[in-house]
Design a binder for these strands. Structure first.
Length: 425
DNA sequence: TCTGGGGTCCTAGGACCC
DNA sequence: TCTGGGGTCCTAGGACCC
């Protein structure tokens, strides 16, 4: 019996979450903004129908949104993260394998029944998710990941929100693949689609039938994989267990440009603490730190700078990472530059289970144990209470460069106070 | 004035070794 | 004048994803 690959995603996930938690905007046109209220990153279907585009800077559409009475929300990742966990837990119960691919997307597998029809299974799953989580999902089914993505696209765009499509039971797929433009295929980006178009290849059927020699010469194994997946030969496997992180990056844009080392130090300190606590949460250690900062990428005298430090001994300790990071910050800082963004990347991550306990004399070992205990205490307090209850001195924020979140709803599924009140008449 | 943030994979080329 | 060849490891950067 053959195995079908399923791709499930939540429709307009961030917008749907906001509508779920605030009944007053249910069924209304809303948009959600990126960090720092920079770009429009999600729209409810109502807002999309009104012609609001995706990924555009907010300031360009501020007036239009007001005129059309479209509600605006700053992003609330705590809410989306919690909703995502609930969704994935539910999906796990109803699929065989499940790969959590992103905050709002999963791949899964399921055996095809004797009559080959998965429509009723999918329909029931959609209803169950809507009933339990309160957000709509779409389901695409096919023989491979790329085909299941295409199925999902057909469910949404070609079959006008039917919610489910199964390309796996269609023998001759040409009719559908002909309608999929190359830049809509998973794995084909700007560069590759331009290259393909130059060679007269404009849709998924033509890419499936491209000469292997030609695609391999230009795109190697990556190109061949996409071609094979379109043919129905699975090359990209389902990964149930998330592979260990290879790097952790924490970066933010500032509300206003900064130009002093003091402010940059504050920002970096804050990001260091977030990054190192993530590291500890995943039980990992890092042995290389990169600190970077940039001015506005759209300005004439764009300036960016970064510096990396390799550590002799991998660590997850906030104090050690902070000390190294601040000395790197000093290196990359240049006066009279209007910095609008900075960040830290921790790389060369390794599991804490194989920590190297050498090179310490007894005094250092004692000191290290103290630092580890301190991290644990801070992590626990911040976990139990609100984030940033406890922090380090250098990260205390005096000035107002912290990212804008002017339109935050302050509603959440994780604090009791913000559970919506429902009045029954 | 105002343009997000966090990832992975692959490849080419340099450094180094025998 | 003539200056090997093959292997591994690492890194930076490109391309792509949500």
């Amino acid at each position: 019996m053959s195995k079908a690959i399923i791709q499930i995603d939540a429709n307009n996930f961030y917008a749907s979450c906001e509508q779920m938690i605030d009944p007053s905007i249910k069924g209304k046109a809303i948009v959600v903004l990126s960090n720092n209220d920079g770009c429009i990153i999600a729209r409810s279907s109502e807002a999309r129908k009104m012609g609001i585009p995706m990924g555009q800077p907010y300031y360009k559409f501020k007036n239009k949104l007001k005129q059309l009475n479209i509600k605006v929300r700053s992003s609330n990742y705590e809410l989306y993260g919690d909703m995502s966990n609930r969704l994935m837990e539910l999906l796990k119960k109803h699929c065989e394998e499940l790969e959590i691919y992103s905050i709002d997307e999963a791949f899964a597998t399921i055996k095809r029944p004797k009559d080959k029809c998965l429509y009723h299974w999918g329909k029931d799953l959609r209803a169950l998710v809507y009933q339990n989580i309160g957000i709509p999902i779409s389901i695409g089914i096919g023989e491979t990941k790329v085909l299941s993505k295409i199925s999902n696209h057909i469910a949404k765009k070609i079959h006008k929100n039917s919610g489910i499509f199964d390309i796996g039971i269609i023998e001759n797929k040409d009719h559908y693949l002909n309608q999929i433009k190359v830049d809509q295929i998973w794995g084909v980006g700007k560069r590759m689609s331009a290259w393909l178009k130059d060679r007269g290849i404009t849709n998924a059927k033509e890419l499936r039938d491209i000469s292997s020699v030609q695609i391999r010469a230009q795109y190697g194994i990556v190109g061949i994989r996409i071609k094979n997946e379109l043919k129905g030969n699975s090359c990209i496997t389902i990964k149930e267990k998330p592979p260990a992180r290879k790097e952790i990056c924490v970066s933010r844009s500032f509300a206003y440009p900064i130009d002093s080392l003091e402010e940059l130090n504050q920002a970096i300190s804050q990001y260091v603490l977030i990054a190192s606590s993530k590291l500890r949460k995943h039980n990992q250690l890092s042995s290389a730190i990169t600190i970077f900062t940039t001015t506005n990428i759209y300005s004439k005298d764009f300036y960016k700078s970064e510096a990396t430090k390799k550590l002799k001994i991998a660590t997850s300790n906030s104090a050690i990472i902070l000390k190294q990071s601040l000395s790197l910050t000093k290196k990359i800082f240049k006066p009279y530059k209007n910095l609008i963004k900075a960040g830290i990347i921790l790389h060369k991550l390794q599991s804490n289970n194989y920590k190297q306990n050498i090179l310490f004399n007894e005094g250092n070992r004692q000191k290290e144990l103290h630092l580890e205990r301190l991290d644990k205490i801070i992590d626990n307090i911040n976990k139990r209470n609100k984030k940033n209850t406890l922090n380090w001195g250098s990260s205390i924020i005096k000035k107002d460069w912290t990212p804008r979140r002017d339109n935050l709803s302050y509603l959440s599924t994780t604090t009791l106070e913000s559970i919506p009140t429902v009045f029954a008449n």
